[in-house]
Amino acid sequence: MRLLLIRHGQTTANVDFLLDTAIPGAELTDLGRRQAAALPDAVADEDIEAVYASTLIRTQRTAAPLAAARGLDVRVRDGIRELTAGDLEMLPGDREPGHEYMRIVFAWAAGDTELRMPGGENGVEALARYDGVIAEAADSGARTAAMVSHGAAIRMWTAARADNVDVSFAAARPLDNTGIVVLDGSPADGWKVLSWAGAAVETAGPDTDAGPTGQPLDEDQKP
């Protein structure tokens, strides 16, 4: 199966660099709505047979134009929502709360799945719910599925599950709004990343050290 993991369009919380992970979450900005409207053209070459979105409103708003263009319904699933920030909810993502959040997220991807987000979920729970939706899509018979999800969740799951992407790669490459990670594979056989934000994995751009909202991390705060 070909899998497109798409980050949602820009939200008001993104503009303010806030850790916004609770349902229903922030609305799209004007730019975010334009990004959503542009998504069908951005993936025009993809033979998408299923469109998924999380239970946060920003992913559903982003997925709607794509689903409409393909004559599909948006399949809303809680499993691909953003990684729960818990006690860090709505705190600054470009400061220490955001650095702590991402340290935990990439610890999960590296295998420390028993670690728990303060007041939130642990890696076992986060990966299990995301895996569940991926498995559903694979079992549906769709040859290509698009899932509109969230930046930290996409990077964490991909680093944990793809054979050719590790934590350092995903940590160094934050996804812009409506950025896409394209994978090929299956839950049984494993996954390989084909492209990350439009670049083939082998030719991806230079590393950048960034946190969950694209802000640079201090040297002692890198995941």
Results as ranks from 00 to 15, higher is better:
83 L>T: 13
180 I>T: 09
75 R>L: 11
101 Y>L: 07
79 G>H: 00
75 R>W: 03
214 G>P: 12
53 A>W: 00
181 V>T: 05
199 A>D: 11
146 A>Y: 06
219 E>L: 14
155 R>A: 02
2 R>L: 14
108 W>L: 05
151 G>L: 04
139 D>K: 15
179 G>L: 05
75 R>T: 09
111 G>R: 07
80 I>P: 05
122 N>A: 00
83 L>H: 13
122 N>T: 01
153 A>M: 14
161 R>W: 04
206 P>D: 11
195 S>P: 04
134 I>Y: 06
6 I>P: 03
221 Q>E: 14
181 V>Y: 00
15 V>T: 15
173 R>S: 03
172 A>H: 14
129 R>D: 05
30 D>R: 15
8 H>Q: 09
166 D>V: 10
139 D>L: 12
187 P>K: 09
223 P>Y: 07
42 A>E: 11
147 M>P: 02
70 R>I: 00
23 I>E: 13
127 L>V: 05
196 W>T: 01
53 A>C: 14
60 Q>E: 12
145 A>P: 08
40 P>N: 10
169 F>Y: 07
37 A>F: 06
2 R>F: 05
191 W>E: 03
74 V>D: 01
15 V>A: 15
186 S>V: 07
201 V>S: 03
63 A>S: 06
198 G>I: 02
183 L>T: 07
77 R>T: 00
3 L>C: 12
124 V>H: 14
202 E>Y: 01
184 D>H: 12
178 T>I: 13
30 D>K: 15
44 A>E: 11
75 R>E: 10
28 L>C: 10
131 D>V: 05
22 A>R: 15
208 T>D: 00
125 E>A: 12
176 D>W: 10
94 D>H: 15
99 H>W: 15
68 A>P: 04
70 R>L: 07
194 L>Q: 12
160 A>R: 13
110 A>G: 13
6 I>W: 05
60 Q>N: 11
176 D>E: 11
115 L>H: 00
140 S>F: 03
73 D>I: 01
133 V>F: 02
182 V>Y: 00
222 K>V: 13
210 A>W: 08
122 N>D: 12
129 R>K: 12
146 A>R: 08
33 R>Y: 02
136 E>R: 06
217 L>V: 12
65 P>Y: 08
216 P>W: 09
126 A>D: 00
38 A>S: 13
1 M>E: 05
162 A>P: 05
4 L>I: 02
48 I>W: 10
110 A>N: 08
171 A>N: 11
101 Y>V: 04
11 T>A: 12
195 S>M: 01
157 W>T: 09
215 Q>M: 13
185 G>V: 07
96 E>T: 13
170 A>M: 10
132 G>E: 04
101 Y>E: 06
204 A>C: 08
20 D>I: 08
19 L>R: 11
155 R>L: 08
149 S>L: 00
192 K>D: 06
116 R>M: 05
162 A>M: 07
127 L>W: 02
107 A>Y: 03
